[in-house]
Simulated assay, not measured.
Amino acid sequence: MIKISETALSPAKGWQSPTTGEVAAALEVIEQKYGDFGSLCGIGGRTVRRWRVGANDDSSSIPYGCWVIVVWLATGAIIVESVALSEEQRAEIVELPQCSSATGWESPTAEVATRFIGKTSFTKLTRKEIAARFKWSSENFGKQIAGQKLNYIHWCCLMLLCGIQPTFMFQE
Rank of each mutant, 00 (worst) to 15 (best):
M1L: 12
K3F: 06
E6G: 01
E6M: 09
T7K: 15
A8M: 05
L9M: 14
P11R: 12
A12M: 03
K13A: 15
K13W: 11
G14Q: 06
Q16K: 15
Q16V: 11
S17G: 09
P18K: 05
T19N: 08
T19D: 07
T19M: 06
T19I: 09
G21L: 09
G21Y: 11
G21Q: 13
E22Q: 00
V23M: 07
A24Q: 11
A24V: 02
A25L: 12
A26P: 10
A26Q: 05
L27T: 07
I30W: 03
E31M: 11
D36P: 02
F37W: 04
G38T: 02
L40Q: 09
G42F: 04
G45F: 00
T47D: 08
R52S: 10
V53Y: 13
G54V: 03
G54W: 00
N56H: 09
N56Q: 12
D57W: 01
D57T: 12
S59D: 03
S60C: 09
S60H: 05
S61I: 08
S61E: 06
S61W: 03
P63Y: 04
Y64C: 00
Y64S: 01
G65F: 03
W67E: 03
V68S: 13
V68A: 14
V68P: 10
V71W: 02
L73D: 03
L73N: 03
A74T: 12
T75Q: 11
G76A: 12
I79P: 05
E81V: 00
V83A: 05
V83Y: 07
V83C: 10
L85S: 02
S86Y: 00
E88L: 08
Q89L: 07
R90M: 04
A91C: 00
E92G: 02
I93L: 09
V94C: 11
P97Q: 12
P97N: 11
P97C: 10
S101R: 11
T103Q: 15
T103F: 15
G104T: 08
W105P: 05
W105T: 02
E106H: 15
E106M: 15
S107R: 01
S107E: 04
S107I: 05
S107A: 13
P108S: 00
A110V: 07
A110L: 02
V112T: 12
I117P: 07
I117W: 02
G118D: 04
T120G: 01
T120E: 14
T120Y: 08
S121E: 06
S121F: 01
F122Y: 15
T123Y: 07
K124T: 09
K124Y: 02
L125H: 08
T126P: 00
R127F: 04
K128A: 15
E129S: 11
E129G: 08
E129M: 12
E129I: 02
R133K: 07
R133V: 00
R133T: 04
R133Q: 06
F134G: 06
F134A: 10
W136T: 05
S137Q: 09
S137Y: 10
S138T: 05
E139S: 14
N140M: 13
Q144I: 00
G147R: 13
Q148C: 06
K149H: 14
L150V: 14
L150H: 09
I153M: 12
W155N: 08
C156E: 06
L158Q: 02
M159S: 08
L161H: 01
C162V: 01
I164S: 02
P166A: 15
T167P: 10
F168E: 12
F168Y: 12
M169E: 03
M169D: 03
F170H: 05
F170N: 01
E172Q: 13
